[in-house]
Design a protein around this nucleic acid. Structure first.
Lengths: 131, 131
DNA sequence: GGTTTATTTAACTGTTTAGTTAATCACGAG
DNA sequence: CTCGTGATTAACTAAACAGTTAAATAAACC
């Protein structure tokens, strides 16, 4: 019953476009250089219109741009939205690094202590405030 | 007519889970520390079951894990899949850096030339319809 | 037992998506 | 102008999605 269309923010648009193996494969191909729709479609077992739709999704997300040369519409990768994803990710990046650090510390502690029975109980590490 | 279910690769699962502002907000909240479903749901204008479904999507992607304490099921952020996204992104990262370098070089060139009136016509980059 | 609180599942609905085939548009070459 | 090629649009279908309300589960409290 959602009457109002939810505002399709750019990041969601981008991530949604990336959440498909075909589309990611297309991007991978485009990272090697511009090419045409037919050539892009060639490796896939799907019709040309299907690929065309995927391209439209990528275009709407700003991940590719198209020029027009005669009857060809060569596609070009536009990395800007990927950069945005990267920036979004940045805040979380320290999280897994930290977690890795903690694991390291834990393992080191284990080694150092020669770890008797219960000393290593990770009692509620409760990293409540990772941030 | 797709008879065979396409194999839901992990990266697609993750990106799809991230491609929703509500779910990203949930992750952001969880980055501050574990919490319960009710507390997670509180800021949103949607029913509890809806949030519950979002959590299931996040869980299926491995982005959160849940323990069980009495009648609460506290959720915890699991950054591992984000790390995978980061790794996927890595190959493209140099692409926008490179592009930035190129822009820098261009600007530098402009400055060097002391650029009289029309010399700066951006005839080159010509991605006319960025849209 | 019965009630309250936290959360999930069931059943349903409207919307979006991913694909299909067939038709159409856009262009260059004869 | 007509033909062939590259690519998109149209019309359709099946499945997945995001939300709803109502019912069910699970545990604590009395």
């Amino acid at each position: 019953m959602s009457l109002n269309t939810p505002p399709p923010d750019r990041l969601s648009l981008t991530l949604n476009a990336l959440a498909d193996p075909t589309r990611r494969a297309i991007l991978a191909r485009l990272s090697l250089g511009e090419t045409t729709v037919n050539e892009l479609a060639e490796p896939f077992e799907m019709s040309l219109p299907a690929v065309s739709k995927h391209l439209k999704v990528l275009e709407r997300a700003g991940l590719i741009s198209r020029t027009r040369t005669a009857q060809w519409r060569p596609c070009k990768l536009e990395p800007e939205p990927l950069k945005e994803v990267d920036m979004w990710l940045r805040d979380y990046r320290k999280m897994w690094e930290q977690r890795l650090d903690r694991l390291e510390a834990y393992l080191k502690e284990l080694q150092a202590k020669d770890t008797p029975v219960q000393s290593a109980k990770p009692k509620d590490d409760k990293d409540g405030d990772i941030k």
